[in-house]
Structures are given as structure tokens and as C-alpha cells.
Nucleic acid binder design. Sequence first.
DNA 1: AGTTTCTACAACCATTTGGTTGTACGTTAC
DNA 2: GTAACGTACAACCAAATGGTTGTAGAAACT
Lengths: 114, 114
Amino acid sequence: MVVETDLSDAEVDRIFRALADATRRDILRRTTESEASVSALAATYDMSFAAVQKHVTVLADAGLVTKKAQGRERLVCANPAQIARARALLDQYERLWRSRIDRLDDLLAEDAQQ
Amino acid sequence: MVVETDLSDAEVDRIFRALADATRRDILRRTTESEASVSALAATYDMSFAAVQKHVTVLADAGLVTKKAQGRERLVCANPAQIARARALLDQYERLWRSRIDRLDDLLAEDAQQ
DNA sequence: AGTTTCTACAACCATTTGGTTGTACGTTAC
DNA sequence: GTAACGTACAACCAAATGGTTGTAGAAACT
């Protein structure tokens, strides 16, 4: 699967920073399984509603989730496209690594011929 | 490719936190292409040697790079296995998403039958 | 031996982060 | 209409982050 990765440094910063917290990763996991209101999410964490609200904001600013109003609730929905972009960024490093290995293999092959 | 992901929350925190900085991502990219000493890395960034040294420490604490002594230099080497683990974590979210879609498809199929 | 180079590490500072409480406002329920 | 619920947001605080400078030690060069 090919994923577009035209993201600015600041956007990538926000994505990985958002992922660098266990509570936020759990929110992402839960909303990936099924959307949930902020208060429904908050009910299961040992912290204030406001704290969970801030975590959701961090995820939303990173584009990893979206919020849609439904009555007085705000439903939090995961955005798998953004998760895929983050994964694609890590893929790039692995491709770099592989191309480096390939170059080393080429060098070894040349040495073997000489 | 199957990748082991038996990482604690704190370890995952460190990995994504380390990735949440453009300078550190650039160091990771460069050391993935080929190993480099800390001072060689520092020479190309518009900040002090000590600052770059700290960035390398953050990457090393996350397991994304290793340092090996060579004379008075410390060669920084990327650790592709750890990068792969981070990628595998993001894969999990995408798998979750896909299984959710599959469940929705099943529900729609049931509705269609009724 | 003396100097330079590379690294380590401490101390310090400004800003950000992750949490709190309190207040206010729109929506739902009685 | 009023009470309860869900959310938004500001103000505040402790701790972590990302930078600096300075000092010191180990390795290499002359």
C-alpha cells in the first residue's frame, strides 16, 4: 500500500509526540475499535475529565483522531489514514537501511571478484 | 515480516518521544545511511555539540541507535530492529481498524439478508 | 610533553507538558 | 423551568524538554 507522506517537520513532530504517551495510545486504540465520546473515554482513566480532554486535543491536533459533534457529546474517531502516514515514515528508514545493506553487498561482491 | 513487540509502555513512550523531533529524525536517517561520530553529526546542525550529544542520548535511550567506542570517537549506529518494532506497533492499529471494518461489513451483510 | 580533538557531564534557563481545579455554556431529561 | 450531563476553556503548578555554557578527562597528533 502506497501512502502519501507530504508532511512538514512540525506535523511529524505532533504525530510522534501524540503517540509518545500510553494514555493517548490507549485512546487511539479504543477509538480505532469504535468511536467514543470524551466522557465515555474519561470514565475509565484515573485522571480528570479535563486531562483526558487535553489528550484528545493532542491526538486531534496531530490528525490521528477527529471529533464530531453529536448532540452534547463529542464523538472521537480514529483517523487510520494518519496512522498509516506515520507508519510510512518508519518504512522509509527501513528502506534506507535495506539500500545500505544492498550497497554493502555490492561492495563485497566487487571485492570477491578482485 | 513478523516483529517482536514485547515493549513496556515506558519503552514505547521513549521510542515515539525520540522520533518526535526533526533533528533526532535527521540523526536517525543519517546513521541509518551510514554510522557517524557525534562530532561529525554535530558539525552540520545549527546548535551546540552538547545539544546534539543530548539528542543522541535520547535516541540511544530509546534503543533507536547504539554507540560504539572507536578511539576517542563514539560512532552512532542506527538500530533498524527497534525502528521495525515501532512500525509494528502502528501496524497493530491498522489491523484493529481493518478488523473493525470487517465486523461492520459482516453486520451490513446480515442486514441485507434480513 | 604539550596541544588539539572528541566526548562526558553538570549547572542553568526558558518553554512545554501533563496534570489539577474552577467556571461557563449548550444540550438533554424530568 | 430546572436540574443534570457533556464539553470548553482558563489559570495554575510540578516536572520534563531542549537549549546554553563551562569544566574535565581520554585519545591522538606534533
